[in-house]
């Protein structure tokens, strides 16, 4: 009888702890049932393939017969392959043209749209609509408009007294034309991102600068643009990542031609893996592209976290 109080306190304490432990275990179980579908799909279809691709890039694989280990041969062959070299050059040229143009023109349009005038909503809609249209639809539409024989572009040029152009069929014009078509759809993205960022330009700063007698150009250069810098850096990286991965539009309009003038890296990878069935070689090319993209994405992450710290510091 005298021993009765002691067990009660011990078991009470233990019970509480056990209950807490059980609750935690139960919560863990519930959480795992919540995340299992996402984990299976996301890890199963990206971590596993990433490792698989890596292994594949050291093999001679045709997707049918058992593959053979060839070490670094695929990578070595890439450095010697004139088609891959051309694909890299084309992709870089496309990126170097597309990224600055999309950002400068996007910023200019956003600045023009960031005011209270009539139809501003309509203008914004017209600039953004092409962005939601698929590359396939764009590609077929512009293949038609720019068709050397039946296209509207040449009939407009004919009207203006300019001789007909080859556009996508002319090796010298195909890539710049591809950039122009990409700008038609890609500008909208830069415009909406800049328009959103322009809402955050601190108004007191502008008022103060204006009181100090700053003109419009001065305001733009010394107040607005510096505030937009983080967004601009983000856009440069984002647009670069996308430009390096261009494929759909090329597939629909030029199939990499004429004479390989628009063969970009992803087109090269697709051709190697799914047309020539040299999957190992394609995987090696994909890894070369991926490493370039990883570097850019890492840069993006660093800039973003630095930006987050800066913002947190500012609000404190």
């Amino acid at each position: 009888m005298s021993s009765l109080p002691t067990p009660i306190t011990i078991s009470g304490h233990e019970l509480r702890q056990r209950a807490r432990r059980q609750a935690r275990r139960q919560e863990s179980a519930t959480a795992w049932t919540f995340i299992t579908p996402a984990v299976l799909i996301i890890l199963g279809l990206s971590i596993v393939p990433t490792v698989w691709s890596f292994l594949l890039s050291f093999q001679a694989d045709n997707l049918v017969t058992p593959s053979r280990w060839v070490g670094l041969d695929n990578y070595y062959a890439l450095t010697k392959d004139p088609h891959f070299g051309q694909a890299v050059r084309n992709t870089l040229l496309y990126t170097v043209l597309y990224v600055p143009l999309s950002i400068v023109l996007g910023l200019a349009l956003a600045l023009a749209l960031n005011r209270r005038i009539r139809f501003v909503g309509l203008y914004r809609t017209l600039f953004v609509v092409p962005f939601v249209i698929s590359a396939t639809a764009q590609g077929t539409l512009f293949s038609f408009i720019l068709d050397p024989q039946f296209g509207a572009a040449n009939s407009v040029l004919h009207w203006l007294g300019v001789s007909p152009q080859g556009f996508f069929t002319d090796p010298a014009q195909a890539l710049p034309v591809l950039v122009a078509v990409s700008l038609w759809s890609g500008l909208g993205f830069c415009v909406v991102v800049y328009l959103a960022a322009l809402q955050d330009v601190p108004q007191p700063l502008i008022e103060a600068a204006r009181l100090d007698g700053a003109g419009r150009w001065h305001l733009l250069r010394h107040v607005t643009l510096p505030t937009l810098t983080p967004v601009s850096v983000f856009l440069v990286l984002w647009q670069t990542i996308n430009a390096l991965q261009v494929f759909d539009l090329v597939y629909v309009t030029t199939k990499g031609g004429p004479l390989g003038a628009t063969t970009v890296i992803v087109y090269f990878i697709w051709e190697q893996a799914f047309k020539n069935f040299t999957a190992g070689y394609g995987a090696a090319a994909a890894y070369v592209l991926a490493v370039a993209l990883f570097v850019i994405a890492a840069g993006l992450r660093v800039i973003r976290s630095r930006e987050r710290q800066r913002l947190e510091g500012a609000t404190r």
Binding site: L43, P49, A297
Partner: peptide
């Protein structure tokens, strides 16, 4: 995984 480009995973 958000940084893994689709081209890398498409073959596997």
């Amino acid at each position: 995984t958000m940084a893994i480009p689709f081209q890398l995973t498409m073959i596997p």
